[in-house]
Design a binder for these strands. Structure first.
Lengths: 144, 144
DNA sequence: TCCATATAATGTCATATGCTATTATATCGC
DNA sequence: GCGATATAATAGCATATGACATTATATGGA
C-alpha cells in the first residue's frame, strides 16, 4: 500500500502542506485561515454556509473561525440584505498586505517544490493530476 | 494562487483522502488509525517514539492512539527487553482480517482515482510526483 | 393566510490533538 | 561508579473541530 501512486501523491501533498504551514505559522495564520482568506479574496460577499461548503468544514467550525478573524480585524460580517438569517463576509483593508505576503510565500514554496521540472513537465504533471481530480470528483464511481 | 499546480496537487490529494476516509469510517477507523496499523504491519516491534516520528504526530498523541487501539484489542504493548522506559508495539491476530479489508478498499479508491490513465501515464505521473517529493524532502532549500 | 418544512447561524458538549511539565530510566563524561 | 544530561512515555491543561440541538427567518403547499 505504501508503495502505490496514491500513497506517493498523498505523501507529497502532505510534505507540501507541511512546508507551507510552516511559513504560514511565521505569519501567524493557520492553514484553514489562509484558505478562508484566499477564498474571500476571490469571491467577496459569500455567506458563511457557502464558504463552509467550499472549504469543506462544518458551518459551526467556520462560524468560530470567522469569529476569530473578525476579532483580529481581518474579516467583517455585514447583514445580508435579502436574508435576515445570513451574513455576508468581506475582507478588510487590513488584509491586503498580509495577502501579498502569503502570495510571496506560496510562490516560494511552489518554486521549491517544482524546482528542476521544465515548463513542459509541469504541464504534463498538471494535466495528469487534473484527470485524477476529475475522477475523484465523480462521487458515484467508488462503489460501482 | 488557487490556479497553481501546487494548489491542484493539494486539492487532488485532499479529495483522495476524503474518499478514502469515507470508506475507512465505514470500517470504524480514522485516517491516523489506519496509518498506524499499516506502519506496524510493515515493521512490527517499533517503539512509540519511533512510530510517532514516522507518522509525524506528537508522542503524546500516539500514546493515546495506542491506548485506544490496545483497548479495542488491535495492538498490544510489550516491554522492550533492552530499555525499560519503552514499549514495543505489535498488531494482534485480530487485525489480519481488518487489514485485508483496508487493502481492498484502498485498492478500490486507487482504481477509481487513476481510472482512465494508462500504465505509461501512471508511471510518468509517479516519476514527476516523486521528483516533487524529493524537492520537498530537502529541508534547507525553501529559504535559500 | 397559515402551517409545515427547510435553511443560516450559533450554543453545548464530546473528542482529538498539541504544549508544557513530570516520572522513570538510560547514557555520557569525569 | 556517579552526577549531569538525554530520552520514553504519560498526565494536565488549552485549543480546534465535529455532532447534535436550538433560534430566527425563509419558502412552499393547502
Amino acid at each position: 500500500m505504501t508503495d502505490s501512486v496514491g500513497f506517493l501523491l498523498n505523501d507529497t501533498a502532505r510534505l507540501y502542506r507541511r512546508t507551507l504551514d510552516g511559513t504560514l505559522r511565521d505569519l501567524g495564520m493557520t492553514s484553514l485561515q489562509w484558505r478562508t482568506v484566499a477564498r474571500l479574496k476571490r469571491e467577496p460577499g459569500m455567506r458563511q454556509s457557502e464558504l463552509a461548503d467550499l472549504l469543506e468544514v462544518e458551518p459551526i467550525t467556520l462560524s468560530r473561525m470567522i469569529d476569530r478573524l473578525a476579532d483580529s480585524g481581518m474579516v467583517c460580517r455585514k447583514a445580508d440584505p435579502n436574508d435576515r438569517r445570513a451574513w455576508n463576509l468581506y475582507l478588510t483593508d487590513k488584509t491586503d498586505g498580509l495577502i501579498r505576503q502569503l502570495e510571496v510565500e506560496a510562490k516560494r514554496v511552489e518554486d521549491h517544490a517544482f524546482g528542476g521540472l521544465s515548463d513542459e513537465e509541469r504541464q504534463t504533471l498538471a494535466g495528469l493530476v487534473e484527470r485524477v481530480r476529475a475522477n475523484l470528483s465523480r462521487k458515484e464511481a467508488v462503489d460501482a
